[in-house]
């Protein structure tokens, strides 16, 4: 039960029921689809990049609580950041979900994203949590089309 409580923390359920930035971004200049065939999670991620800064970000689609909340939290945390800052945020996030010990600096960087740390106890759900981040990275690298987790 405690593990389950760690997974479905209040903030995650709240972001799942009321996702932030669930919209197509006006004037988006990047868009990539993320697809997790295992769950059927499918999100379209929209970014507006101005001079290497993510000035706006939104998404549409559906998925499980973990993937949707993770996407919602991600959009909140990367808006206004540079491409490089977003990439280092992803590496800290990825280190957290693979059960590695985080530095204080990384924890500070992650902020609210730390609510997803409970996913580490549910290995098959790690892909749910990282789907949107892989999609974001593809978008930042200028890729198009669909990113699949398997």
């Amino acid at each position: 039960m405690s593990e389950l409580g760690d997974l479905y923390q209040e903030l995650i359920v709240e972001h799942y029921n009321h996702p932030r930035n669930l919209r197509k971004v006006e004037g988006a200049n990047r868009s990539v689809e993320g697809y997790n065939p295992f769950c059927g999670d499918r999100f379209m991620l929209y970014l507006r990049m101005d001079n290497g800064i993510i000035t706006d970000i939104g998404f549409l689609g559906s998925g499980c609580a973990i993937s949707k909340a993770s996407t919602s939290l991600m959009t909140e945390s990367v808006r206004g950041k540079s491409s490089e800052e977003a990439q280092s945020l992803f590496s800290a996030f990825h280190r957290m979900l693979t059960g590695q010990v985080l530095s204080d600096q990384e924890r500070e960087l992650l902020g609210d994203l730390e609510v997803l740390s409970g996913v580490v106890e549910f290995p098959i759900r790690v892909k749910c949590a990282t789907l949107s981040w892989h999609t974001l990275r593809a978008a930042l690298e200028g890729q198009k089309g669909t990113v699949a987790t398997e």
Partner: peptide, 19 residues
């Protein structure tokens, strides 16, 4: 989402399939 149903049920010892 069915996957969340599956995870919660698993915590109760109930094995179902989702997907």
């Amino acid at each position: 989402h069915p996957h969340d149903i599956g995870t919660v049920l698993d915590s109760e010892g109930i094995a179902i399939r989702t997907g």
